[in-house]
Design a binder for these strands. Structure first.
Length: 637
DNA sequence: GCCGTTTTCGGCCCGACTGTTTTCAGTCG
């Protein structure tokens, strides 16, 4: 299972509490309006990091990190809830942490954190980023050599002073220097899902050829389809681990070997991710897959459940626990292994839990109660509501996009070239909209004829395939829509989105988004948060108001499948559905090879507990068009 | 610091690999 967070927050993460601490108290309260769940999570991770270096008992630091993780993933805007005086119950957040949140969101400061920072400088916490350097060693270096910064550490290593510290050696000194160099030259960056997929495909291909290897399977956060991926995890079923490990650490793409053992090795790829490879004896994959797929939090709950039933769970299987509370060993040892995950879950009296759900977000409780949702699959999609051609900023002709969609077995593809004002994307004037409509009509005439003649592609569904005429309608900076009502009424489907003036205040951005949601002509709001993963932040919206308006007006919210967007996020999709919204899952393809990006959107929707009934484009073309036609009746309902 | 149809106190998941050690602590996932 890969690390779910970096060993420590970067100092450059510029968390909010620093900023606020420097403000006057009266200004701070206003400024705190910009706080997000993510900011709270960073603050509590920082507290956990500092307490580690201070040498606080492990369970306390675990508690802070655990609370930070839960807060970061919460679908509810905790800052707003706390400020409204209505703190919701959040797992892992007890009285002490709750009080600290209240203090931060109401005053903009947290005295506890400020105190900690005076005791342990951030530069010291930074040292945890060096591979192999943990809190104990960092504290030791600080106490014995007075090292407080990365520069101090580098100087000490170069001056050969590290080797004089008890428990450290000349070799450690060398490893520290290498670690610093690597940090300076290779800033850690997470992969997009499609990049992880490419790495995994080639590794599986290469390692699968090693004699004796029965299977190679990806695990970790990639298997759970997290929206970005740090390390890669591979599991191999083989009776000959040595040959496999030799091949793995000998790959031409290996930059250096991180660790090497008989059953577990790790490499760093050249200009690429760290890859962990674990060996499992043939026929025992069940508990190995569960262990290395994670998440950590999911596994912790499973182990507690095993323990309640008298078993200790590890990747190797279940070990019977003796009267002393320890697993039985030697002749008394009793190990239960399982070939499949489903069998291992069944041993814990649980149904199989899909990897995308394993985040300890209620899935174990739902499994226990028999209420796991029937998750949507890519096969449920009967069409795609968002795509582009070279008439705006796509790279291929309308016909090529349509043919590619038709061969995917869809009943419809909605062509949604950009509207007029998005000049950078060659947005269509009303005149060009008419021309495009004529081309689409001609194409559909041909498709219908081929279907009647039985010469359509074999993938064509019974209801046939049609290219629907849509647009990606710009919501302008002033909130006005980019085409007039008369033109909008003539599209089959209208997808609206915000691309410009992204830095407006929350109230203004929310008003613009609501304007689209409430239009009788707008059917879908595309990539509602406007984010780009790792590069562009979310729009600052009043999300609860957006969900409520979308639900009330029957406007769909998109889960955009582009691996750079994945927007709505899994958490938001889950929240939106829970308050009555309907979703679409679209590719936003600008090229035929991106049409299958819907699979990433489906994966995020699955992470958000979304079922086929929650998604508009699981419906037939007739039902989709009927739903669109009924939009004016839903307004103000 | 959190948490509780076995507990409001006493637990809190588990093992491999590494490095510096002579039996183990630290780190990592």
């Amino acid at each position: 299972m890969p690390a779910e967070r970096p060993a420590t927050r970067s100092h450059a993460d510029a968390d909010v509490a620093v900023v606020h601490a420097e403000l006057h108290a009266d200004e701070a309260a206003d400024e705190a309006a910009d706080l997000t769940n993510g900011d709270l999570a960073r603050v509590f991770h920082e507290i956990g990091d500092i307490l580690e270096v201070k040498g606080e008992i492990a369970f306390k630091t675990i508690a802070y990190h655990g609370a930070a993780d839960t807060i970061g993933r919460s679908p509810i805007d905790l800052v707003a809830a706390y400020r409204a005086g209505d703190p919701p119950k959040v797992s892992g957040v007890g009285q002490a942490i709750s009080d600290k949140i209240t203090e931060l969101v109401t005053t903009g400061r947290m005295l506890f954190l400020e105190q900690l920072r005076t005791e342990v400088p951030a530069s010291l916490v930074d040292l945890l980023k060096i591979p192999g350097l943990g809190p104990k060693t960092v504290r030791q270096l600080h106490e014995e050599l007075g090292i407080a910064t990365m520069d101090d550490l580098k100087a000490a290593a170069e001056g050969q002073r590290i080797r004089d510290v008890r428990g450290l050696s000349e070799r450690t000194e060398k490893l520290i220097l290498e670690g610093i160099t690597r940090l300076e030259t290779q800033p850690p960056r997470r992969m997009y899902l499609h990049q992880a997929e490419e790495h995994i495909a080639s590794l599986v291909e290469l390692l699968g050829q090693v004699p004796g290897v029965d299977s190679i399977q990806p695990a970790g956060s990639y298997r759970r389809r997290k929206e970005s991926i740090g390390d890669l995890d591979l599991l191999a079923e083989t009776a000959n681990p040595t040959a496999l490990m030799n091949r793995f650490t000998d790959l031409g793409t290996v930059d250096h070997i991180v660790a090497r053992g008989g059953h577990k090795s790790a490499i760093r790829m050249i200009r690429g991710p760290q890859v962990d490879l674990m060996v499992m004896p043939p026929g025992t994959a069940g508990t190995y897959l569960i262990h290395f797929t994670g998440s950590k939090e999911h596994n912790v709950k499973l182990r507690a459940r095993a323990r309640d039933r008298g078993w200790s769970l590890s990747e190797h299987g279940f070990l019977r626990i003796g009267e002393d509370g320890e697993p039985l060993t030697g002749a008394d040892a009793e190990l239960r292994t399982f070939a499949t995950e489903a069998d291992a879950y069944a041993f814990l009296e649980l149904p199989f839990i899909e990897p995308e759900l394993r985040e300890d977000q209620g899935e174990i409780e739902a499994a226990q109660a028999g209420t796991l949702p029937p998750l949507i699959t890519k096969a449920d999609l009967r069409g795609d509501c968002h795509s582009h051609s070279d008439w705006s900023d796509g790279s291929q002709p309308i016909e090529v996009m349509a043919e590619a969609a038709r061969r995917r077995g869809y009943a419809y593809q909605v062509l949604t070239d950009h509207s007029r004002s998005l000049a950078i994307a060659n947005g269509l004037t009303p005149e060009r909209v008419e021309e495009e409509r004529a081309i689409i009509a001609a194409l559909n005439k041909r498709f219908a004829a081929e279907e009647a003649a039985g010469t359509a592609p074999p993938e064509t569904p019974l209801e046939g395939f049609r290219l629907l005429h849509g647009c990606e309608l710009e919501v302008r900076a002033d909130g006005e829509l980019d085409y007039d009502d008369e033109l909008l009424a003539r599209f089959d489907v209208v997808v609206a989105s915000v691309h410009v003036a992204r830095r407006q205040p929350r109230a203004e951005l929310t008003r613009r988004t609501m304007n689209a949601i409430r239009s009788p002509h707008v059917d879908i709001v595309a990539h509602p948060a406007g984010r780009m993963i790792q590069t562009r932040d979310d729009l600052d919206l009043d999300w609860e108001a957006v969900y409520a308006a979308a639900a009330a007006n029957g406007t769909a919210l998109e889960v955009n499948g582009s691996p750079h967007r994945l927007d709505l996020s899994a958490e938001r999709a889950r929240r939106a559905v829970s308050v009555g919204c309907i979703l679409t899952i679209d590719s936003d393809a600008h090229h035929t090879r991106e049409l299958d990006d819907t699979r990433w959107g489906v994966a995020q929707a699955r992470r958000g507990w979304v079922t086929p009934a929650d998604v508009l484009n699981t419906r037939s073309r007739a039902d989709l068009l009927a739903w669109v036609a009924a939009k004016p009746d839903r307004i103000g309902a």
